[in-house]
Design a protein around this nucleic acid. Structure first.
Length: 255
DNA sequence: ATGGCACCAAATTGGTGA
């Protein structure tokens, strides 16, 4: 099976591209979406189910919002991080084909002096402690989503430009390392990849054309899933669309 | 140093993202 993640930056705008992508990638069993930016009552449930998919979602208007679209039944859905009070809809967890999928939209943080940065670090702490118990209950677990963290300098097109800022700061990278310390493995780095592989490019300044991007969308796999993982790739094709999302899908292939 | 682009809600601009 293949599992995937994609920050679509408004599902209202991107739904046709999502359905088109799923049709073109018919071997993707489950796709986690971030930044749907839609309240639940206006979520395009009918369009997605009529296209033959199962779907679970937790939305809000304007900001955030997450969903899972799957070709197999979606079971045991959990919204947000249990035990962590959060007005923002950033996590949806469910089991598909026996795999526990945690779809996450980790906060951006804005800048190091912002309250949003403190929220990001507290949020990551809550995620890490909850995942400890979730992984014990579900050994086959994947954490997929927009992490808003570039884990290493090679994940940044121009580290000098980003140095000292949000997405690359030491506390954020330390949180990423704590996720790895739980036993989670960066699926992308299990395999040889071309240099300057990124998952996000700024809309401004022809960033995509110049490949001035960041790798901030990730699939982390538990040990049991890492053992089943045969490939992991970033699909830059949708970034070439008219009105693209600024993020592109990341896909992991499991036995 | 700043804005640049896109999206959204509300409004003819500002907040947020990364």
């Amino acid at each position: 099976m293949k599992i995937a993640t994609w920050n679509v930056n408004s599902l209202k705008v991107r739904l046709p591209q999502v359905l088109e992508w799923l049709a073109a990638n018919s071997d993707v069993t489950a796709l986690c979406l971030q930044e749907t930016k839609m309240d639940d009552p206006v979520f395009p449930l009918a369009e997605i189910t009529e296209a033959g998919f199962h779907v679970a979602f937790a939305g809000q208007k304007t900001y955030n919002g997450v969903a899972i679209i799957a070709r197999a039944p979606i079971e045991d859905v959990v919204i947000n991080i249990p035990g962590f009070e959060d007005a923002q809809k950033r996590v949806i967890t469910a089991t598909v084909n026996g795999v526990r999928l945690v779809g996450a939209y980790i906060p951006n943080g804005q800048d190091l002096e912002s309250d949003k940065y403190q929220y990001k670090l507290a949020w990551l702490n809550a995620l890490i402690s909850w995942l400890k118990t979730e992984m014990a209950a579900y050994p086959q677990l994947a954490l997929l989503g927009d992490y808003n963290i570039a884990p290493e300098d090679r994940d940044v097109h121009d580290i000098k430009k980003w140095q000292g800022g949000v997405l690359v700061s030491e506390p954020e990278r330390a949180a990423f390392e704590q996720l790895q310390a739980l036993g989670l493995v960066d699926a992308f780095r299990l395999f040889e990849q071309s240099e300057k592989s990124f998952s996000w490019w700024d809309y401004r300044g022809f960033s995509f054309k110049k490949n001035a991007g960041l790798r901030i969308d990730h699939i982390l796999l538990s040990q049991e899933l890492a053992a089943r993982c045969r490939a992991c790739s970033i699909d830059i094709e949708p970034r070439k669309n008219e009105r693209p999302s600024d993020h592109t899908p990341v896909i992991a292939t499991l036995d």
